[in-house]
Design a binder for these strands. Structure first.
Length: 259
DNA sequence: ATGACATATGAGATATGA
């Protein structure tokens, strides 16, 4: 089973690149973030034509997450459990049957958190605490699950081309990275690091500004976190970097895990 | 350095992103 995650930075603005990549990579399941539209504006017919089922949690202008799946989606959970309905669409979860195997998949869009001296950073940390609490609850079920998405966390120095440029940024503050490590400490596996423990210069985001793509000045902030019951089945992981070089690309590229 | 660059909204300038 091939599961991908991709922050598309507006599904409407980048629909050409998204469909091109779906035809090329043929993933079974895709977790999308930053669709930047409400459910009724989501181009569902385009994905139905590509034989995808979908679950969408949208919002006007900002955020918005979705799951595309070749398998029927069951037990759909809209919004991160434990939240007091903050109005931000950042989490959607569903369960699929891959043959006789049941797998739960979530599309995760954690807050950016900048500037770090504002309520936005507090919100980022609180949201990650809620994600940690929900992960704990899922782990108690002892079933296979994947939490894939844009975590807005640079986990380590080797996950940035120029770490010094990020030391005061919400994505790389020690407090932020500690939340990510909490997820790992619970027993979740960062799929990319599991198979590429020392790889450098492997990035999922290249800023539109400053010629970041041309300079290969990127960061690795999109992650697929695996429960123990599915980490054993991880057979491959790669970043679809070439997509960033296409016409009118998202600033993120897809991350693909094979399970 | 609050800018570059891009997107949505809405019709100009602002909020957001990472």
């Amino acid at each position: 089973m091939r599961v991908a995650t991709w922050n598309v930075n507006s599904i409407k603005a980048h629909l050409e690149a998204v469909t091109r990549w779906l035809r090329e990579a043929k993933p079974d399941i895709v977790c999308l973030q930053e669709i930047k539209c409400e459910e009724q504006g989501f181009p569902a017919a385009v994905f139905e034509d590509l034989n995808y089922n979908m679950a969408v949690l949208g919002q006007k202008t900002y955020n918005g997450v979705a799951i595309l799946s070749k398998f029927p989606l069951e037990n759909i959970v809209r919004g991160l459990p434990g939240g007091n309905s903050d109005g931000q669409s950042r989490y959607i979860q569903a369960t699929v049957m891959d043959g006789s195997r049941s797998v739960t998949v979530a599309s995760v869009y954690a807050p950016n958190g900048n500037p770090t001296d504002s309520p936005k950073y507090t919100y980022k940390l609180e949201w990650m605490d809620r994600l940690i609490a929900h992960a704990k609850a899922l782990l108690k079920l002892e079933e296979p699950f994947v939490l894939a998405g844009d975590y807005n966390v640079i986990p380590t120095e080797r996950d940035a081309k120029t770490p010094s440029q990020w030391v005061k940024d919400a994505l790389f503050l020690l407090t932020t990275r500690a939340k990510f490590r909490e997820l790992e400490a619970l027993g979740l596996t960062d799929a990319f690091r599991a198979l590429q423990p020392t790889a450098a210069n492997q990035f999922t985001y290249f800023d539109y500004q400053g010629g970041a793509w041309q300079r290969q000045n990127g960061i690795r902030i999109d992650h697929a976190m695996l429960s123990p019951q599915i980490a054993d089945r991880l057979t491959g992981v790669h970043i679809e970097k070439h997509v960033r070089g296409w016409e009118k690309p998202s600033d993120h590229v897809p991350l693909v895990v094979d399970l």
